[in-house]
Design a protein around this nucleic acid. Sequence first.
RNA 1: GCCCGGGUGGUGAAAUUGGUAGACACAACGGACUUAAAAUCCGUCGCUCGAAUAAAAUCGGCGUACCGGUUCGAUUCCGGUUCCGGGCACCA
Length: 913
Amino acid sequence: MQPDYHPESIERQAQQHWDDRQTFRATEQSAKPKYYCLSMFPYPSGKLHMGHVRNYTIGDVLSRYHLMKGYNVMQPMGWDAFGLPAENAAIQNKVPPAQWTYDNIAYMKQQLKSLGFAIDWSRELATCKPDYYKWNQWLFLRMLEKGIAYKKTQVVNWDPVDQTVLANEQVIDGRGWRTGAIVEKREIPGYYLGITQYAEELLSDLDKLPGWPERVKTMQANWIGKSIGVRFAFTHDIRNDAGAAINDGKLWVFTTRADTIMGVTFCAVAAEHPLAAHAALSDKKLADFIDKCKHGSVMEADMATMEKEGMDTGLKVTHPLTGEQVPVWVGNYVLMSYGDGAVMAVPAHDERDFEFANQYELPIKQVLENTLVYTTELKAEFPRESYEHAYFDTKIWKAWYASKSPDEVLLFNSGKYNGMSHAEAVDAIATDLAKLGLGEKKVQWRLRDWGISRQRYWGCPIPIIHCDACGSVPVPDDQLPVKLPEDCVPDGSGNPLHKRADFLNCACPKCGKPAKRETDTMDTFVDSSWYYARYASGFKSDAMVDEETSYWMPVDQYIGGIEHAILHLLYSRFWTKVMRNLGLVKYDEPFANLLTQGMVLNHIYSRRTDKGGIEYFAPEEVATIRDAAGKVLGAKALADGQPVEFQGMGTMSKSKRNGVDPQALIEQYGADTARLFMMFAAPPEQTLEWADSGVEGAHRFLKRLWASAYKNERHIEFALESRKKGRFDWNDEAWKNAAPSQNGLRHQIHRILQQANYDLSKHQFNTVASAAMKLLNTIEEIEPEAVEAGKGYTPSGNVQAELACESFSILLRLLSPICPHITHALWRELGYGEDILHAPWPEPLAAALEQDEIELVLQVNGKLRGNMLVAKNADKATLERLALAHVAVQKHLAGATPKKIVIVPGRLINIVA
RNA sequence: GCCCGGGUGGUGAAAUUGGUAGACACAACGGACUUAAAAUCCGUCGCUCGAAUAAAAUCGGCGUACCGGUUCGAUUCCGGUUCCGGGCACCA
């Protein structure tokens, strides 16, 4: 064997070996248990970044580990190939998104291959191919038939300069990222999927997912947000010009806090609400305000953080229970798309209403009793006169409320409901409203239906044809797929499909007259909602999925970034349930076990353009300015020397230009070093700030491993030879006769292995990597001189050779999922066998783990004072006697009598004095 | 703003989930080898703390973002604060 480690040649040979034998080609015919290991497929943005390397290495470690554990493993790969960045690239480079995408796929595929992942490439797919997205269209049509898909208006960001719809990402501080123009909200029609019809099951089935991280399940449950409340109406007699009562004289609202209904002092409606529009007809200032509300982005984070503004409409509605006249305000924080676009306001017991009431001097009426004492401190901070009997700062109130059980807080100031608890009051009030025909109990979900229409070119066409005579007509199944022309070059304004007569013009499937195709495309989350089932289904052209999915599905291990904790994972769960209800699949949930990888972060630098848009700089394009502690204060662009802004750390992404390409790393050190370093850096679920400062160390370890194997080559050969000839019987008896130092080393080796196997079961790969390093450190303590050629037959020499042989075999197998190339090569070079992947997974031997004596820690009053060796089965009395007699204990007890002795078996003795 | 995570040496991190804080590495420093450098090997490495000493060994104190609590014992559990990251429905 070669004396030095040459990664490029051994990696090429190992990959060739796997290619030649089709090692990772998965088949459905196997007696072994199946293991479907899936990493979230990448968007083909151009190059891999470190987040990809992390994600796919984690998946590969799990795949290879299970392969050696005796599973029938399938690990596929594909491309989430539709999306916005391809259009941006087209605008910049004037290349069609299709060509840019296919070029990127080719490059990134070669990068993935060079990392040596155990992928079954025969199952590769790309979502931008018609044979894939045909089935998006097909299932969408089934959903239309079932009433799951429907059409209604949606609010979008509109750039008035580019005359185009903007993605949320393209809105920076309320302005278009290219034009800098103030963004407007626009209402346009679009298609929705009724995910709320599945809300109950999506929530309750979280309990069927013990293999998912708790935090992801919590996030999904909060997102679905089931709450039981009351929908009710204020009445009015406000009539439009035609004399008809607006909305039948009812202002509907929803509340989860119906018990506070007697504390309502005003109502707030969205700017788009019919009452607001009516009032604006005769009020110029109100009309201007409503117009102003239409500017700004539609993002929830922006809505929630913006200054709450409102204006009185001058209109009054009647409280259904008190008969009081309640003023109606327009509030910029009320969303038309939530519920009925109107809310009741109870400033005494709602933080947002409180803030609004304070700002506009609206009355506050307390209706929940409160035994919190109005202290002088509170008076100083909240001195307003009307606070005399109520302490309405809702932060204080909420803290007080949270310290009580809901039944302890009773209603007061609420007429006939006085003295009732929360639950009693909600029931009584709902009953009274129902008697009046003005309300009822209702389950309300925070979850909204999924709007899938995108006014963009590079996506899956929505299979609808618009006919003047017949309206919106679904494309018949036999005309699927509706193919997207692949040669368009978007220029940033409008949808290029509008200019494509060959795509646009068609015949109405119903009446045959000339008609126009829908030009909206589907949200790319549709593409990623079922790709896992397609991998598993043999790519039939006549079916979306087939019976083979029932062999592989559900996915046994899904791996992907925590940023997908809600949307992608929830949509996939929903899509699965729709497919199940259509009889296409038999499982309820797509992903049995989930590992959410922590983000790989890097610095983000940006600068405002002259127009008011935003421009990002890659970290290597700037020189950072740091303070004494090394904290980044700012930076200057290397190109022009002008300042750029440091935006903090953020996840690696194409759009923020802060991705790090692993190519240089792979070329300089090899794939094994890149993989090892990535796994060693941090546990998989932890966020990681990118720095390559440890790469050298990972590479140094692999060089040491190779050198050590080279040094031990002859001893291992000798030991393997001896085993074959049956010259020595390496049973427990034989080891008992070996020297204590040799048994000590063997004990250490098996202890490290035991811990590493435990860490693997927890998916904590960084400590598995460090276990490999510890194993090598331990192996280097074995003295190889004793078995130099020709002198290897002394009893001690035999033990040394056998110890080296056993230890290396453990180390190579343990390391092989992380560093498959070097371990593949060394396994063969040292003569262990043809293919390490066919070797069984190493397990520690009970006999090697056994120890006669154990070390116990001695504490006095919880402080470490010493330790002692005791027989492993020493009884309690002996332990106490030995501990009290210990010199360090005696010293710290200083003659005091122990009050208590705490013994933790196998660990410590704490003497409390 | 709301929901979910996280904060441990100069750095990445570990601690068998309430029991020796800092394993394994990186960087730095010192040494060996070398004409020299690289590579390699050996050693030191939480603290502008205290005692001891010529120097060390050694002994002790403090230390897991901050404040408080529970416990014989807290990086781990509970309450509060703060900073950082992820998500917030058209980035994927």
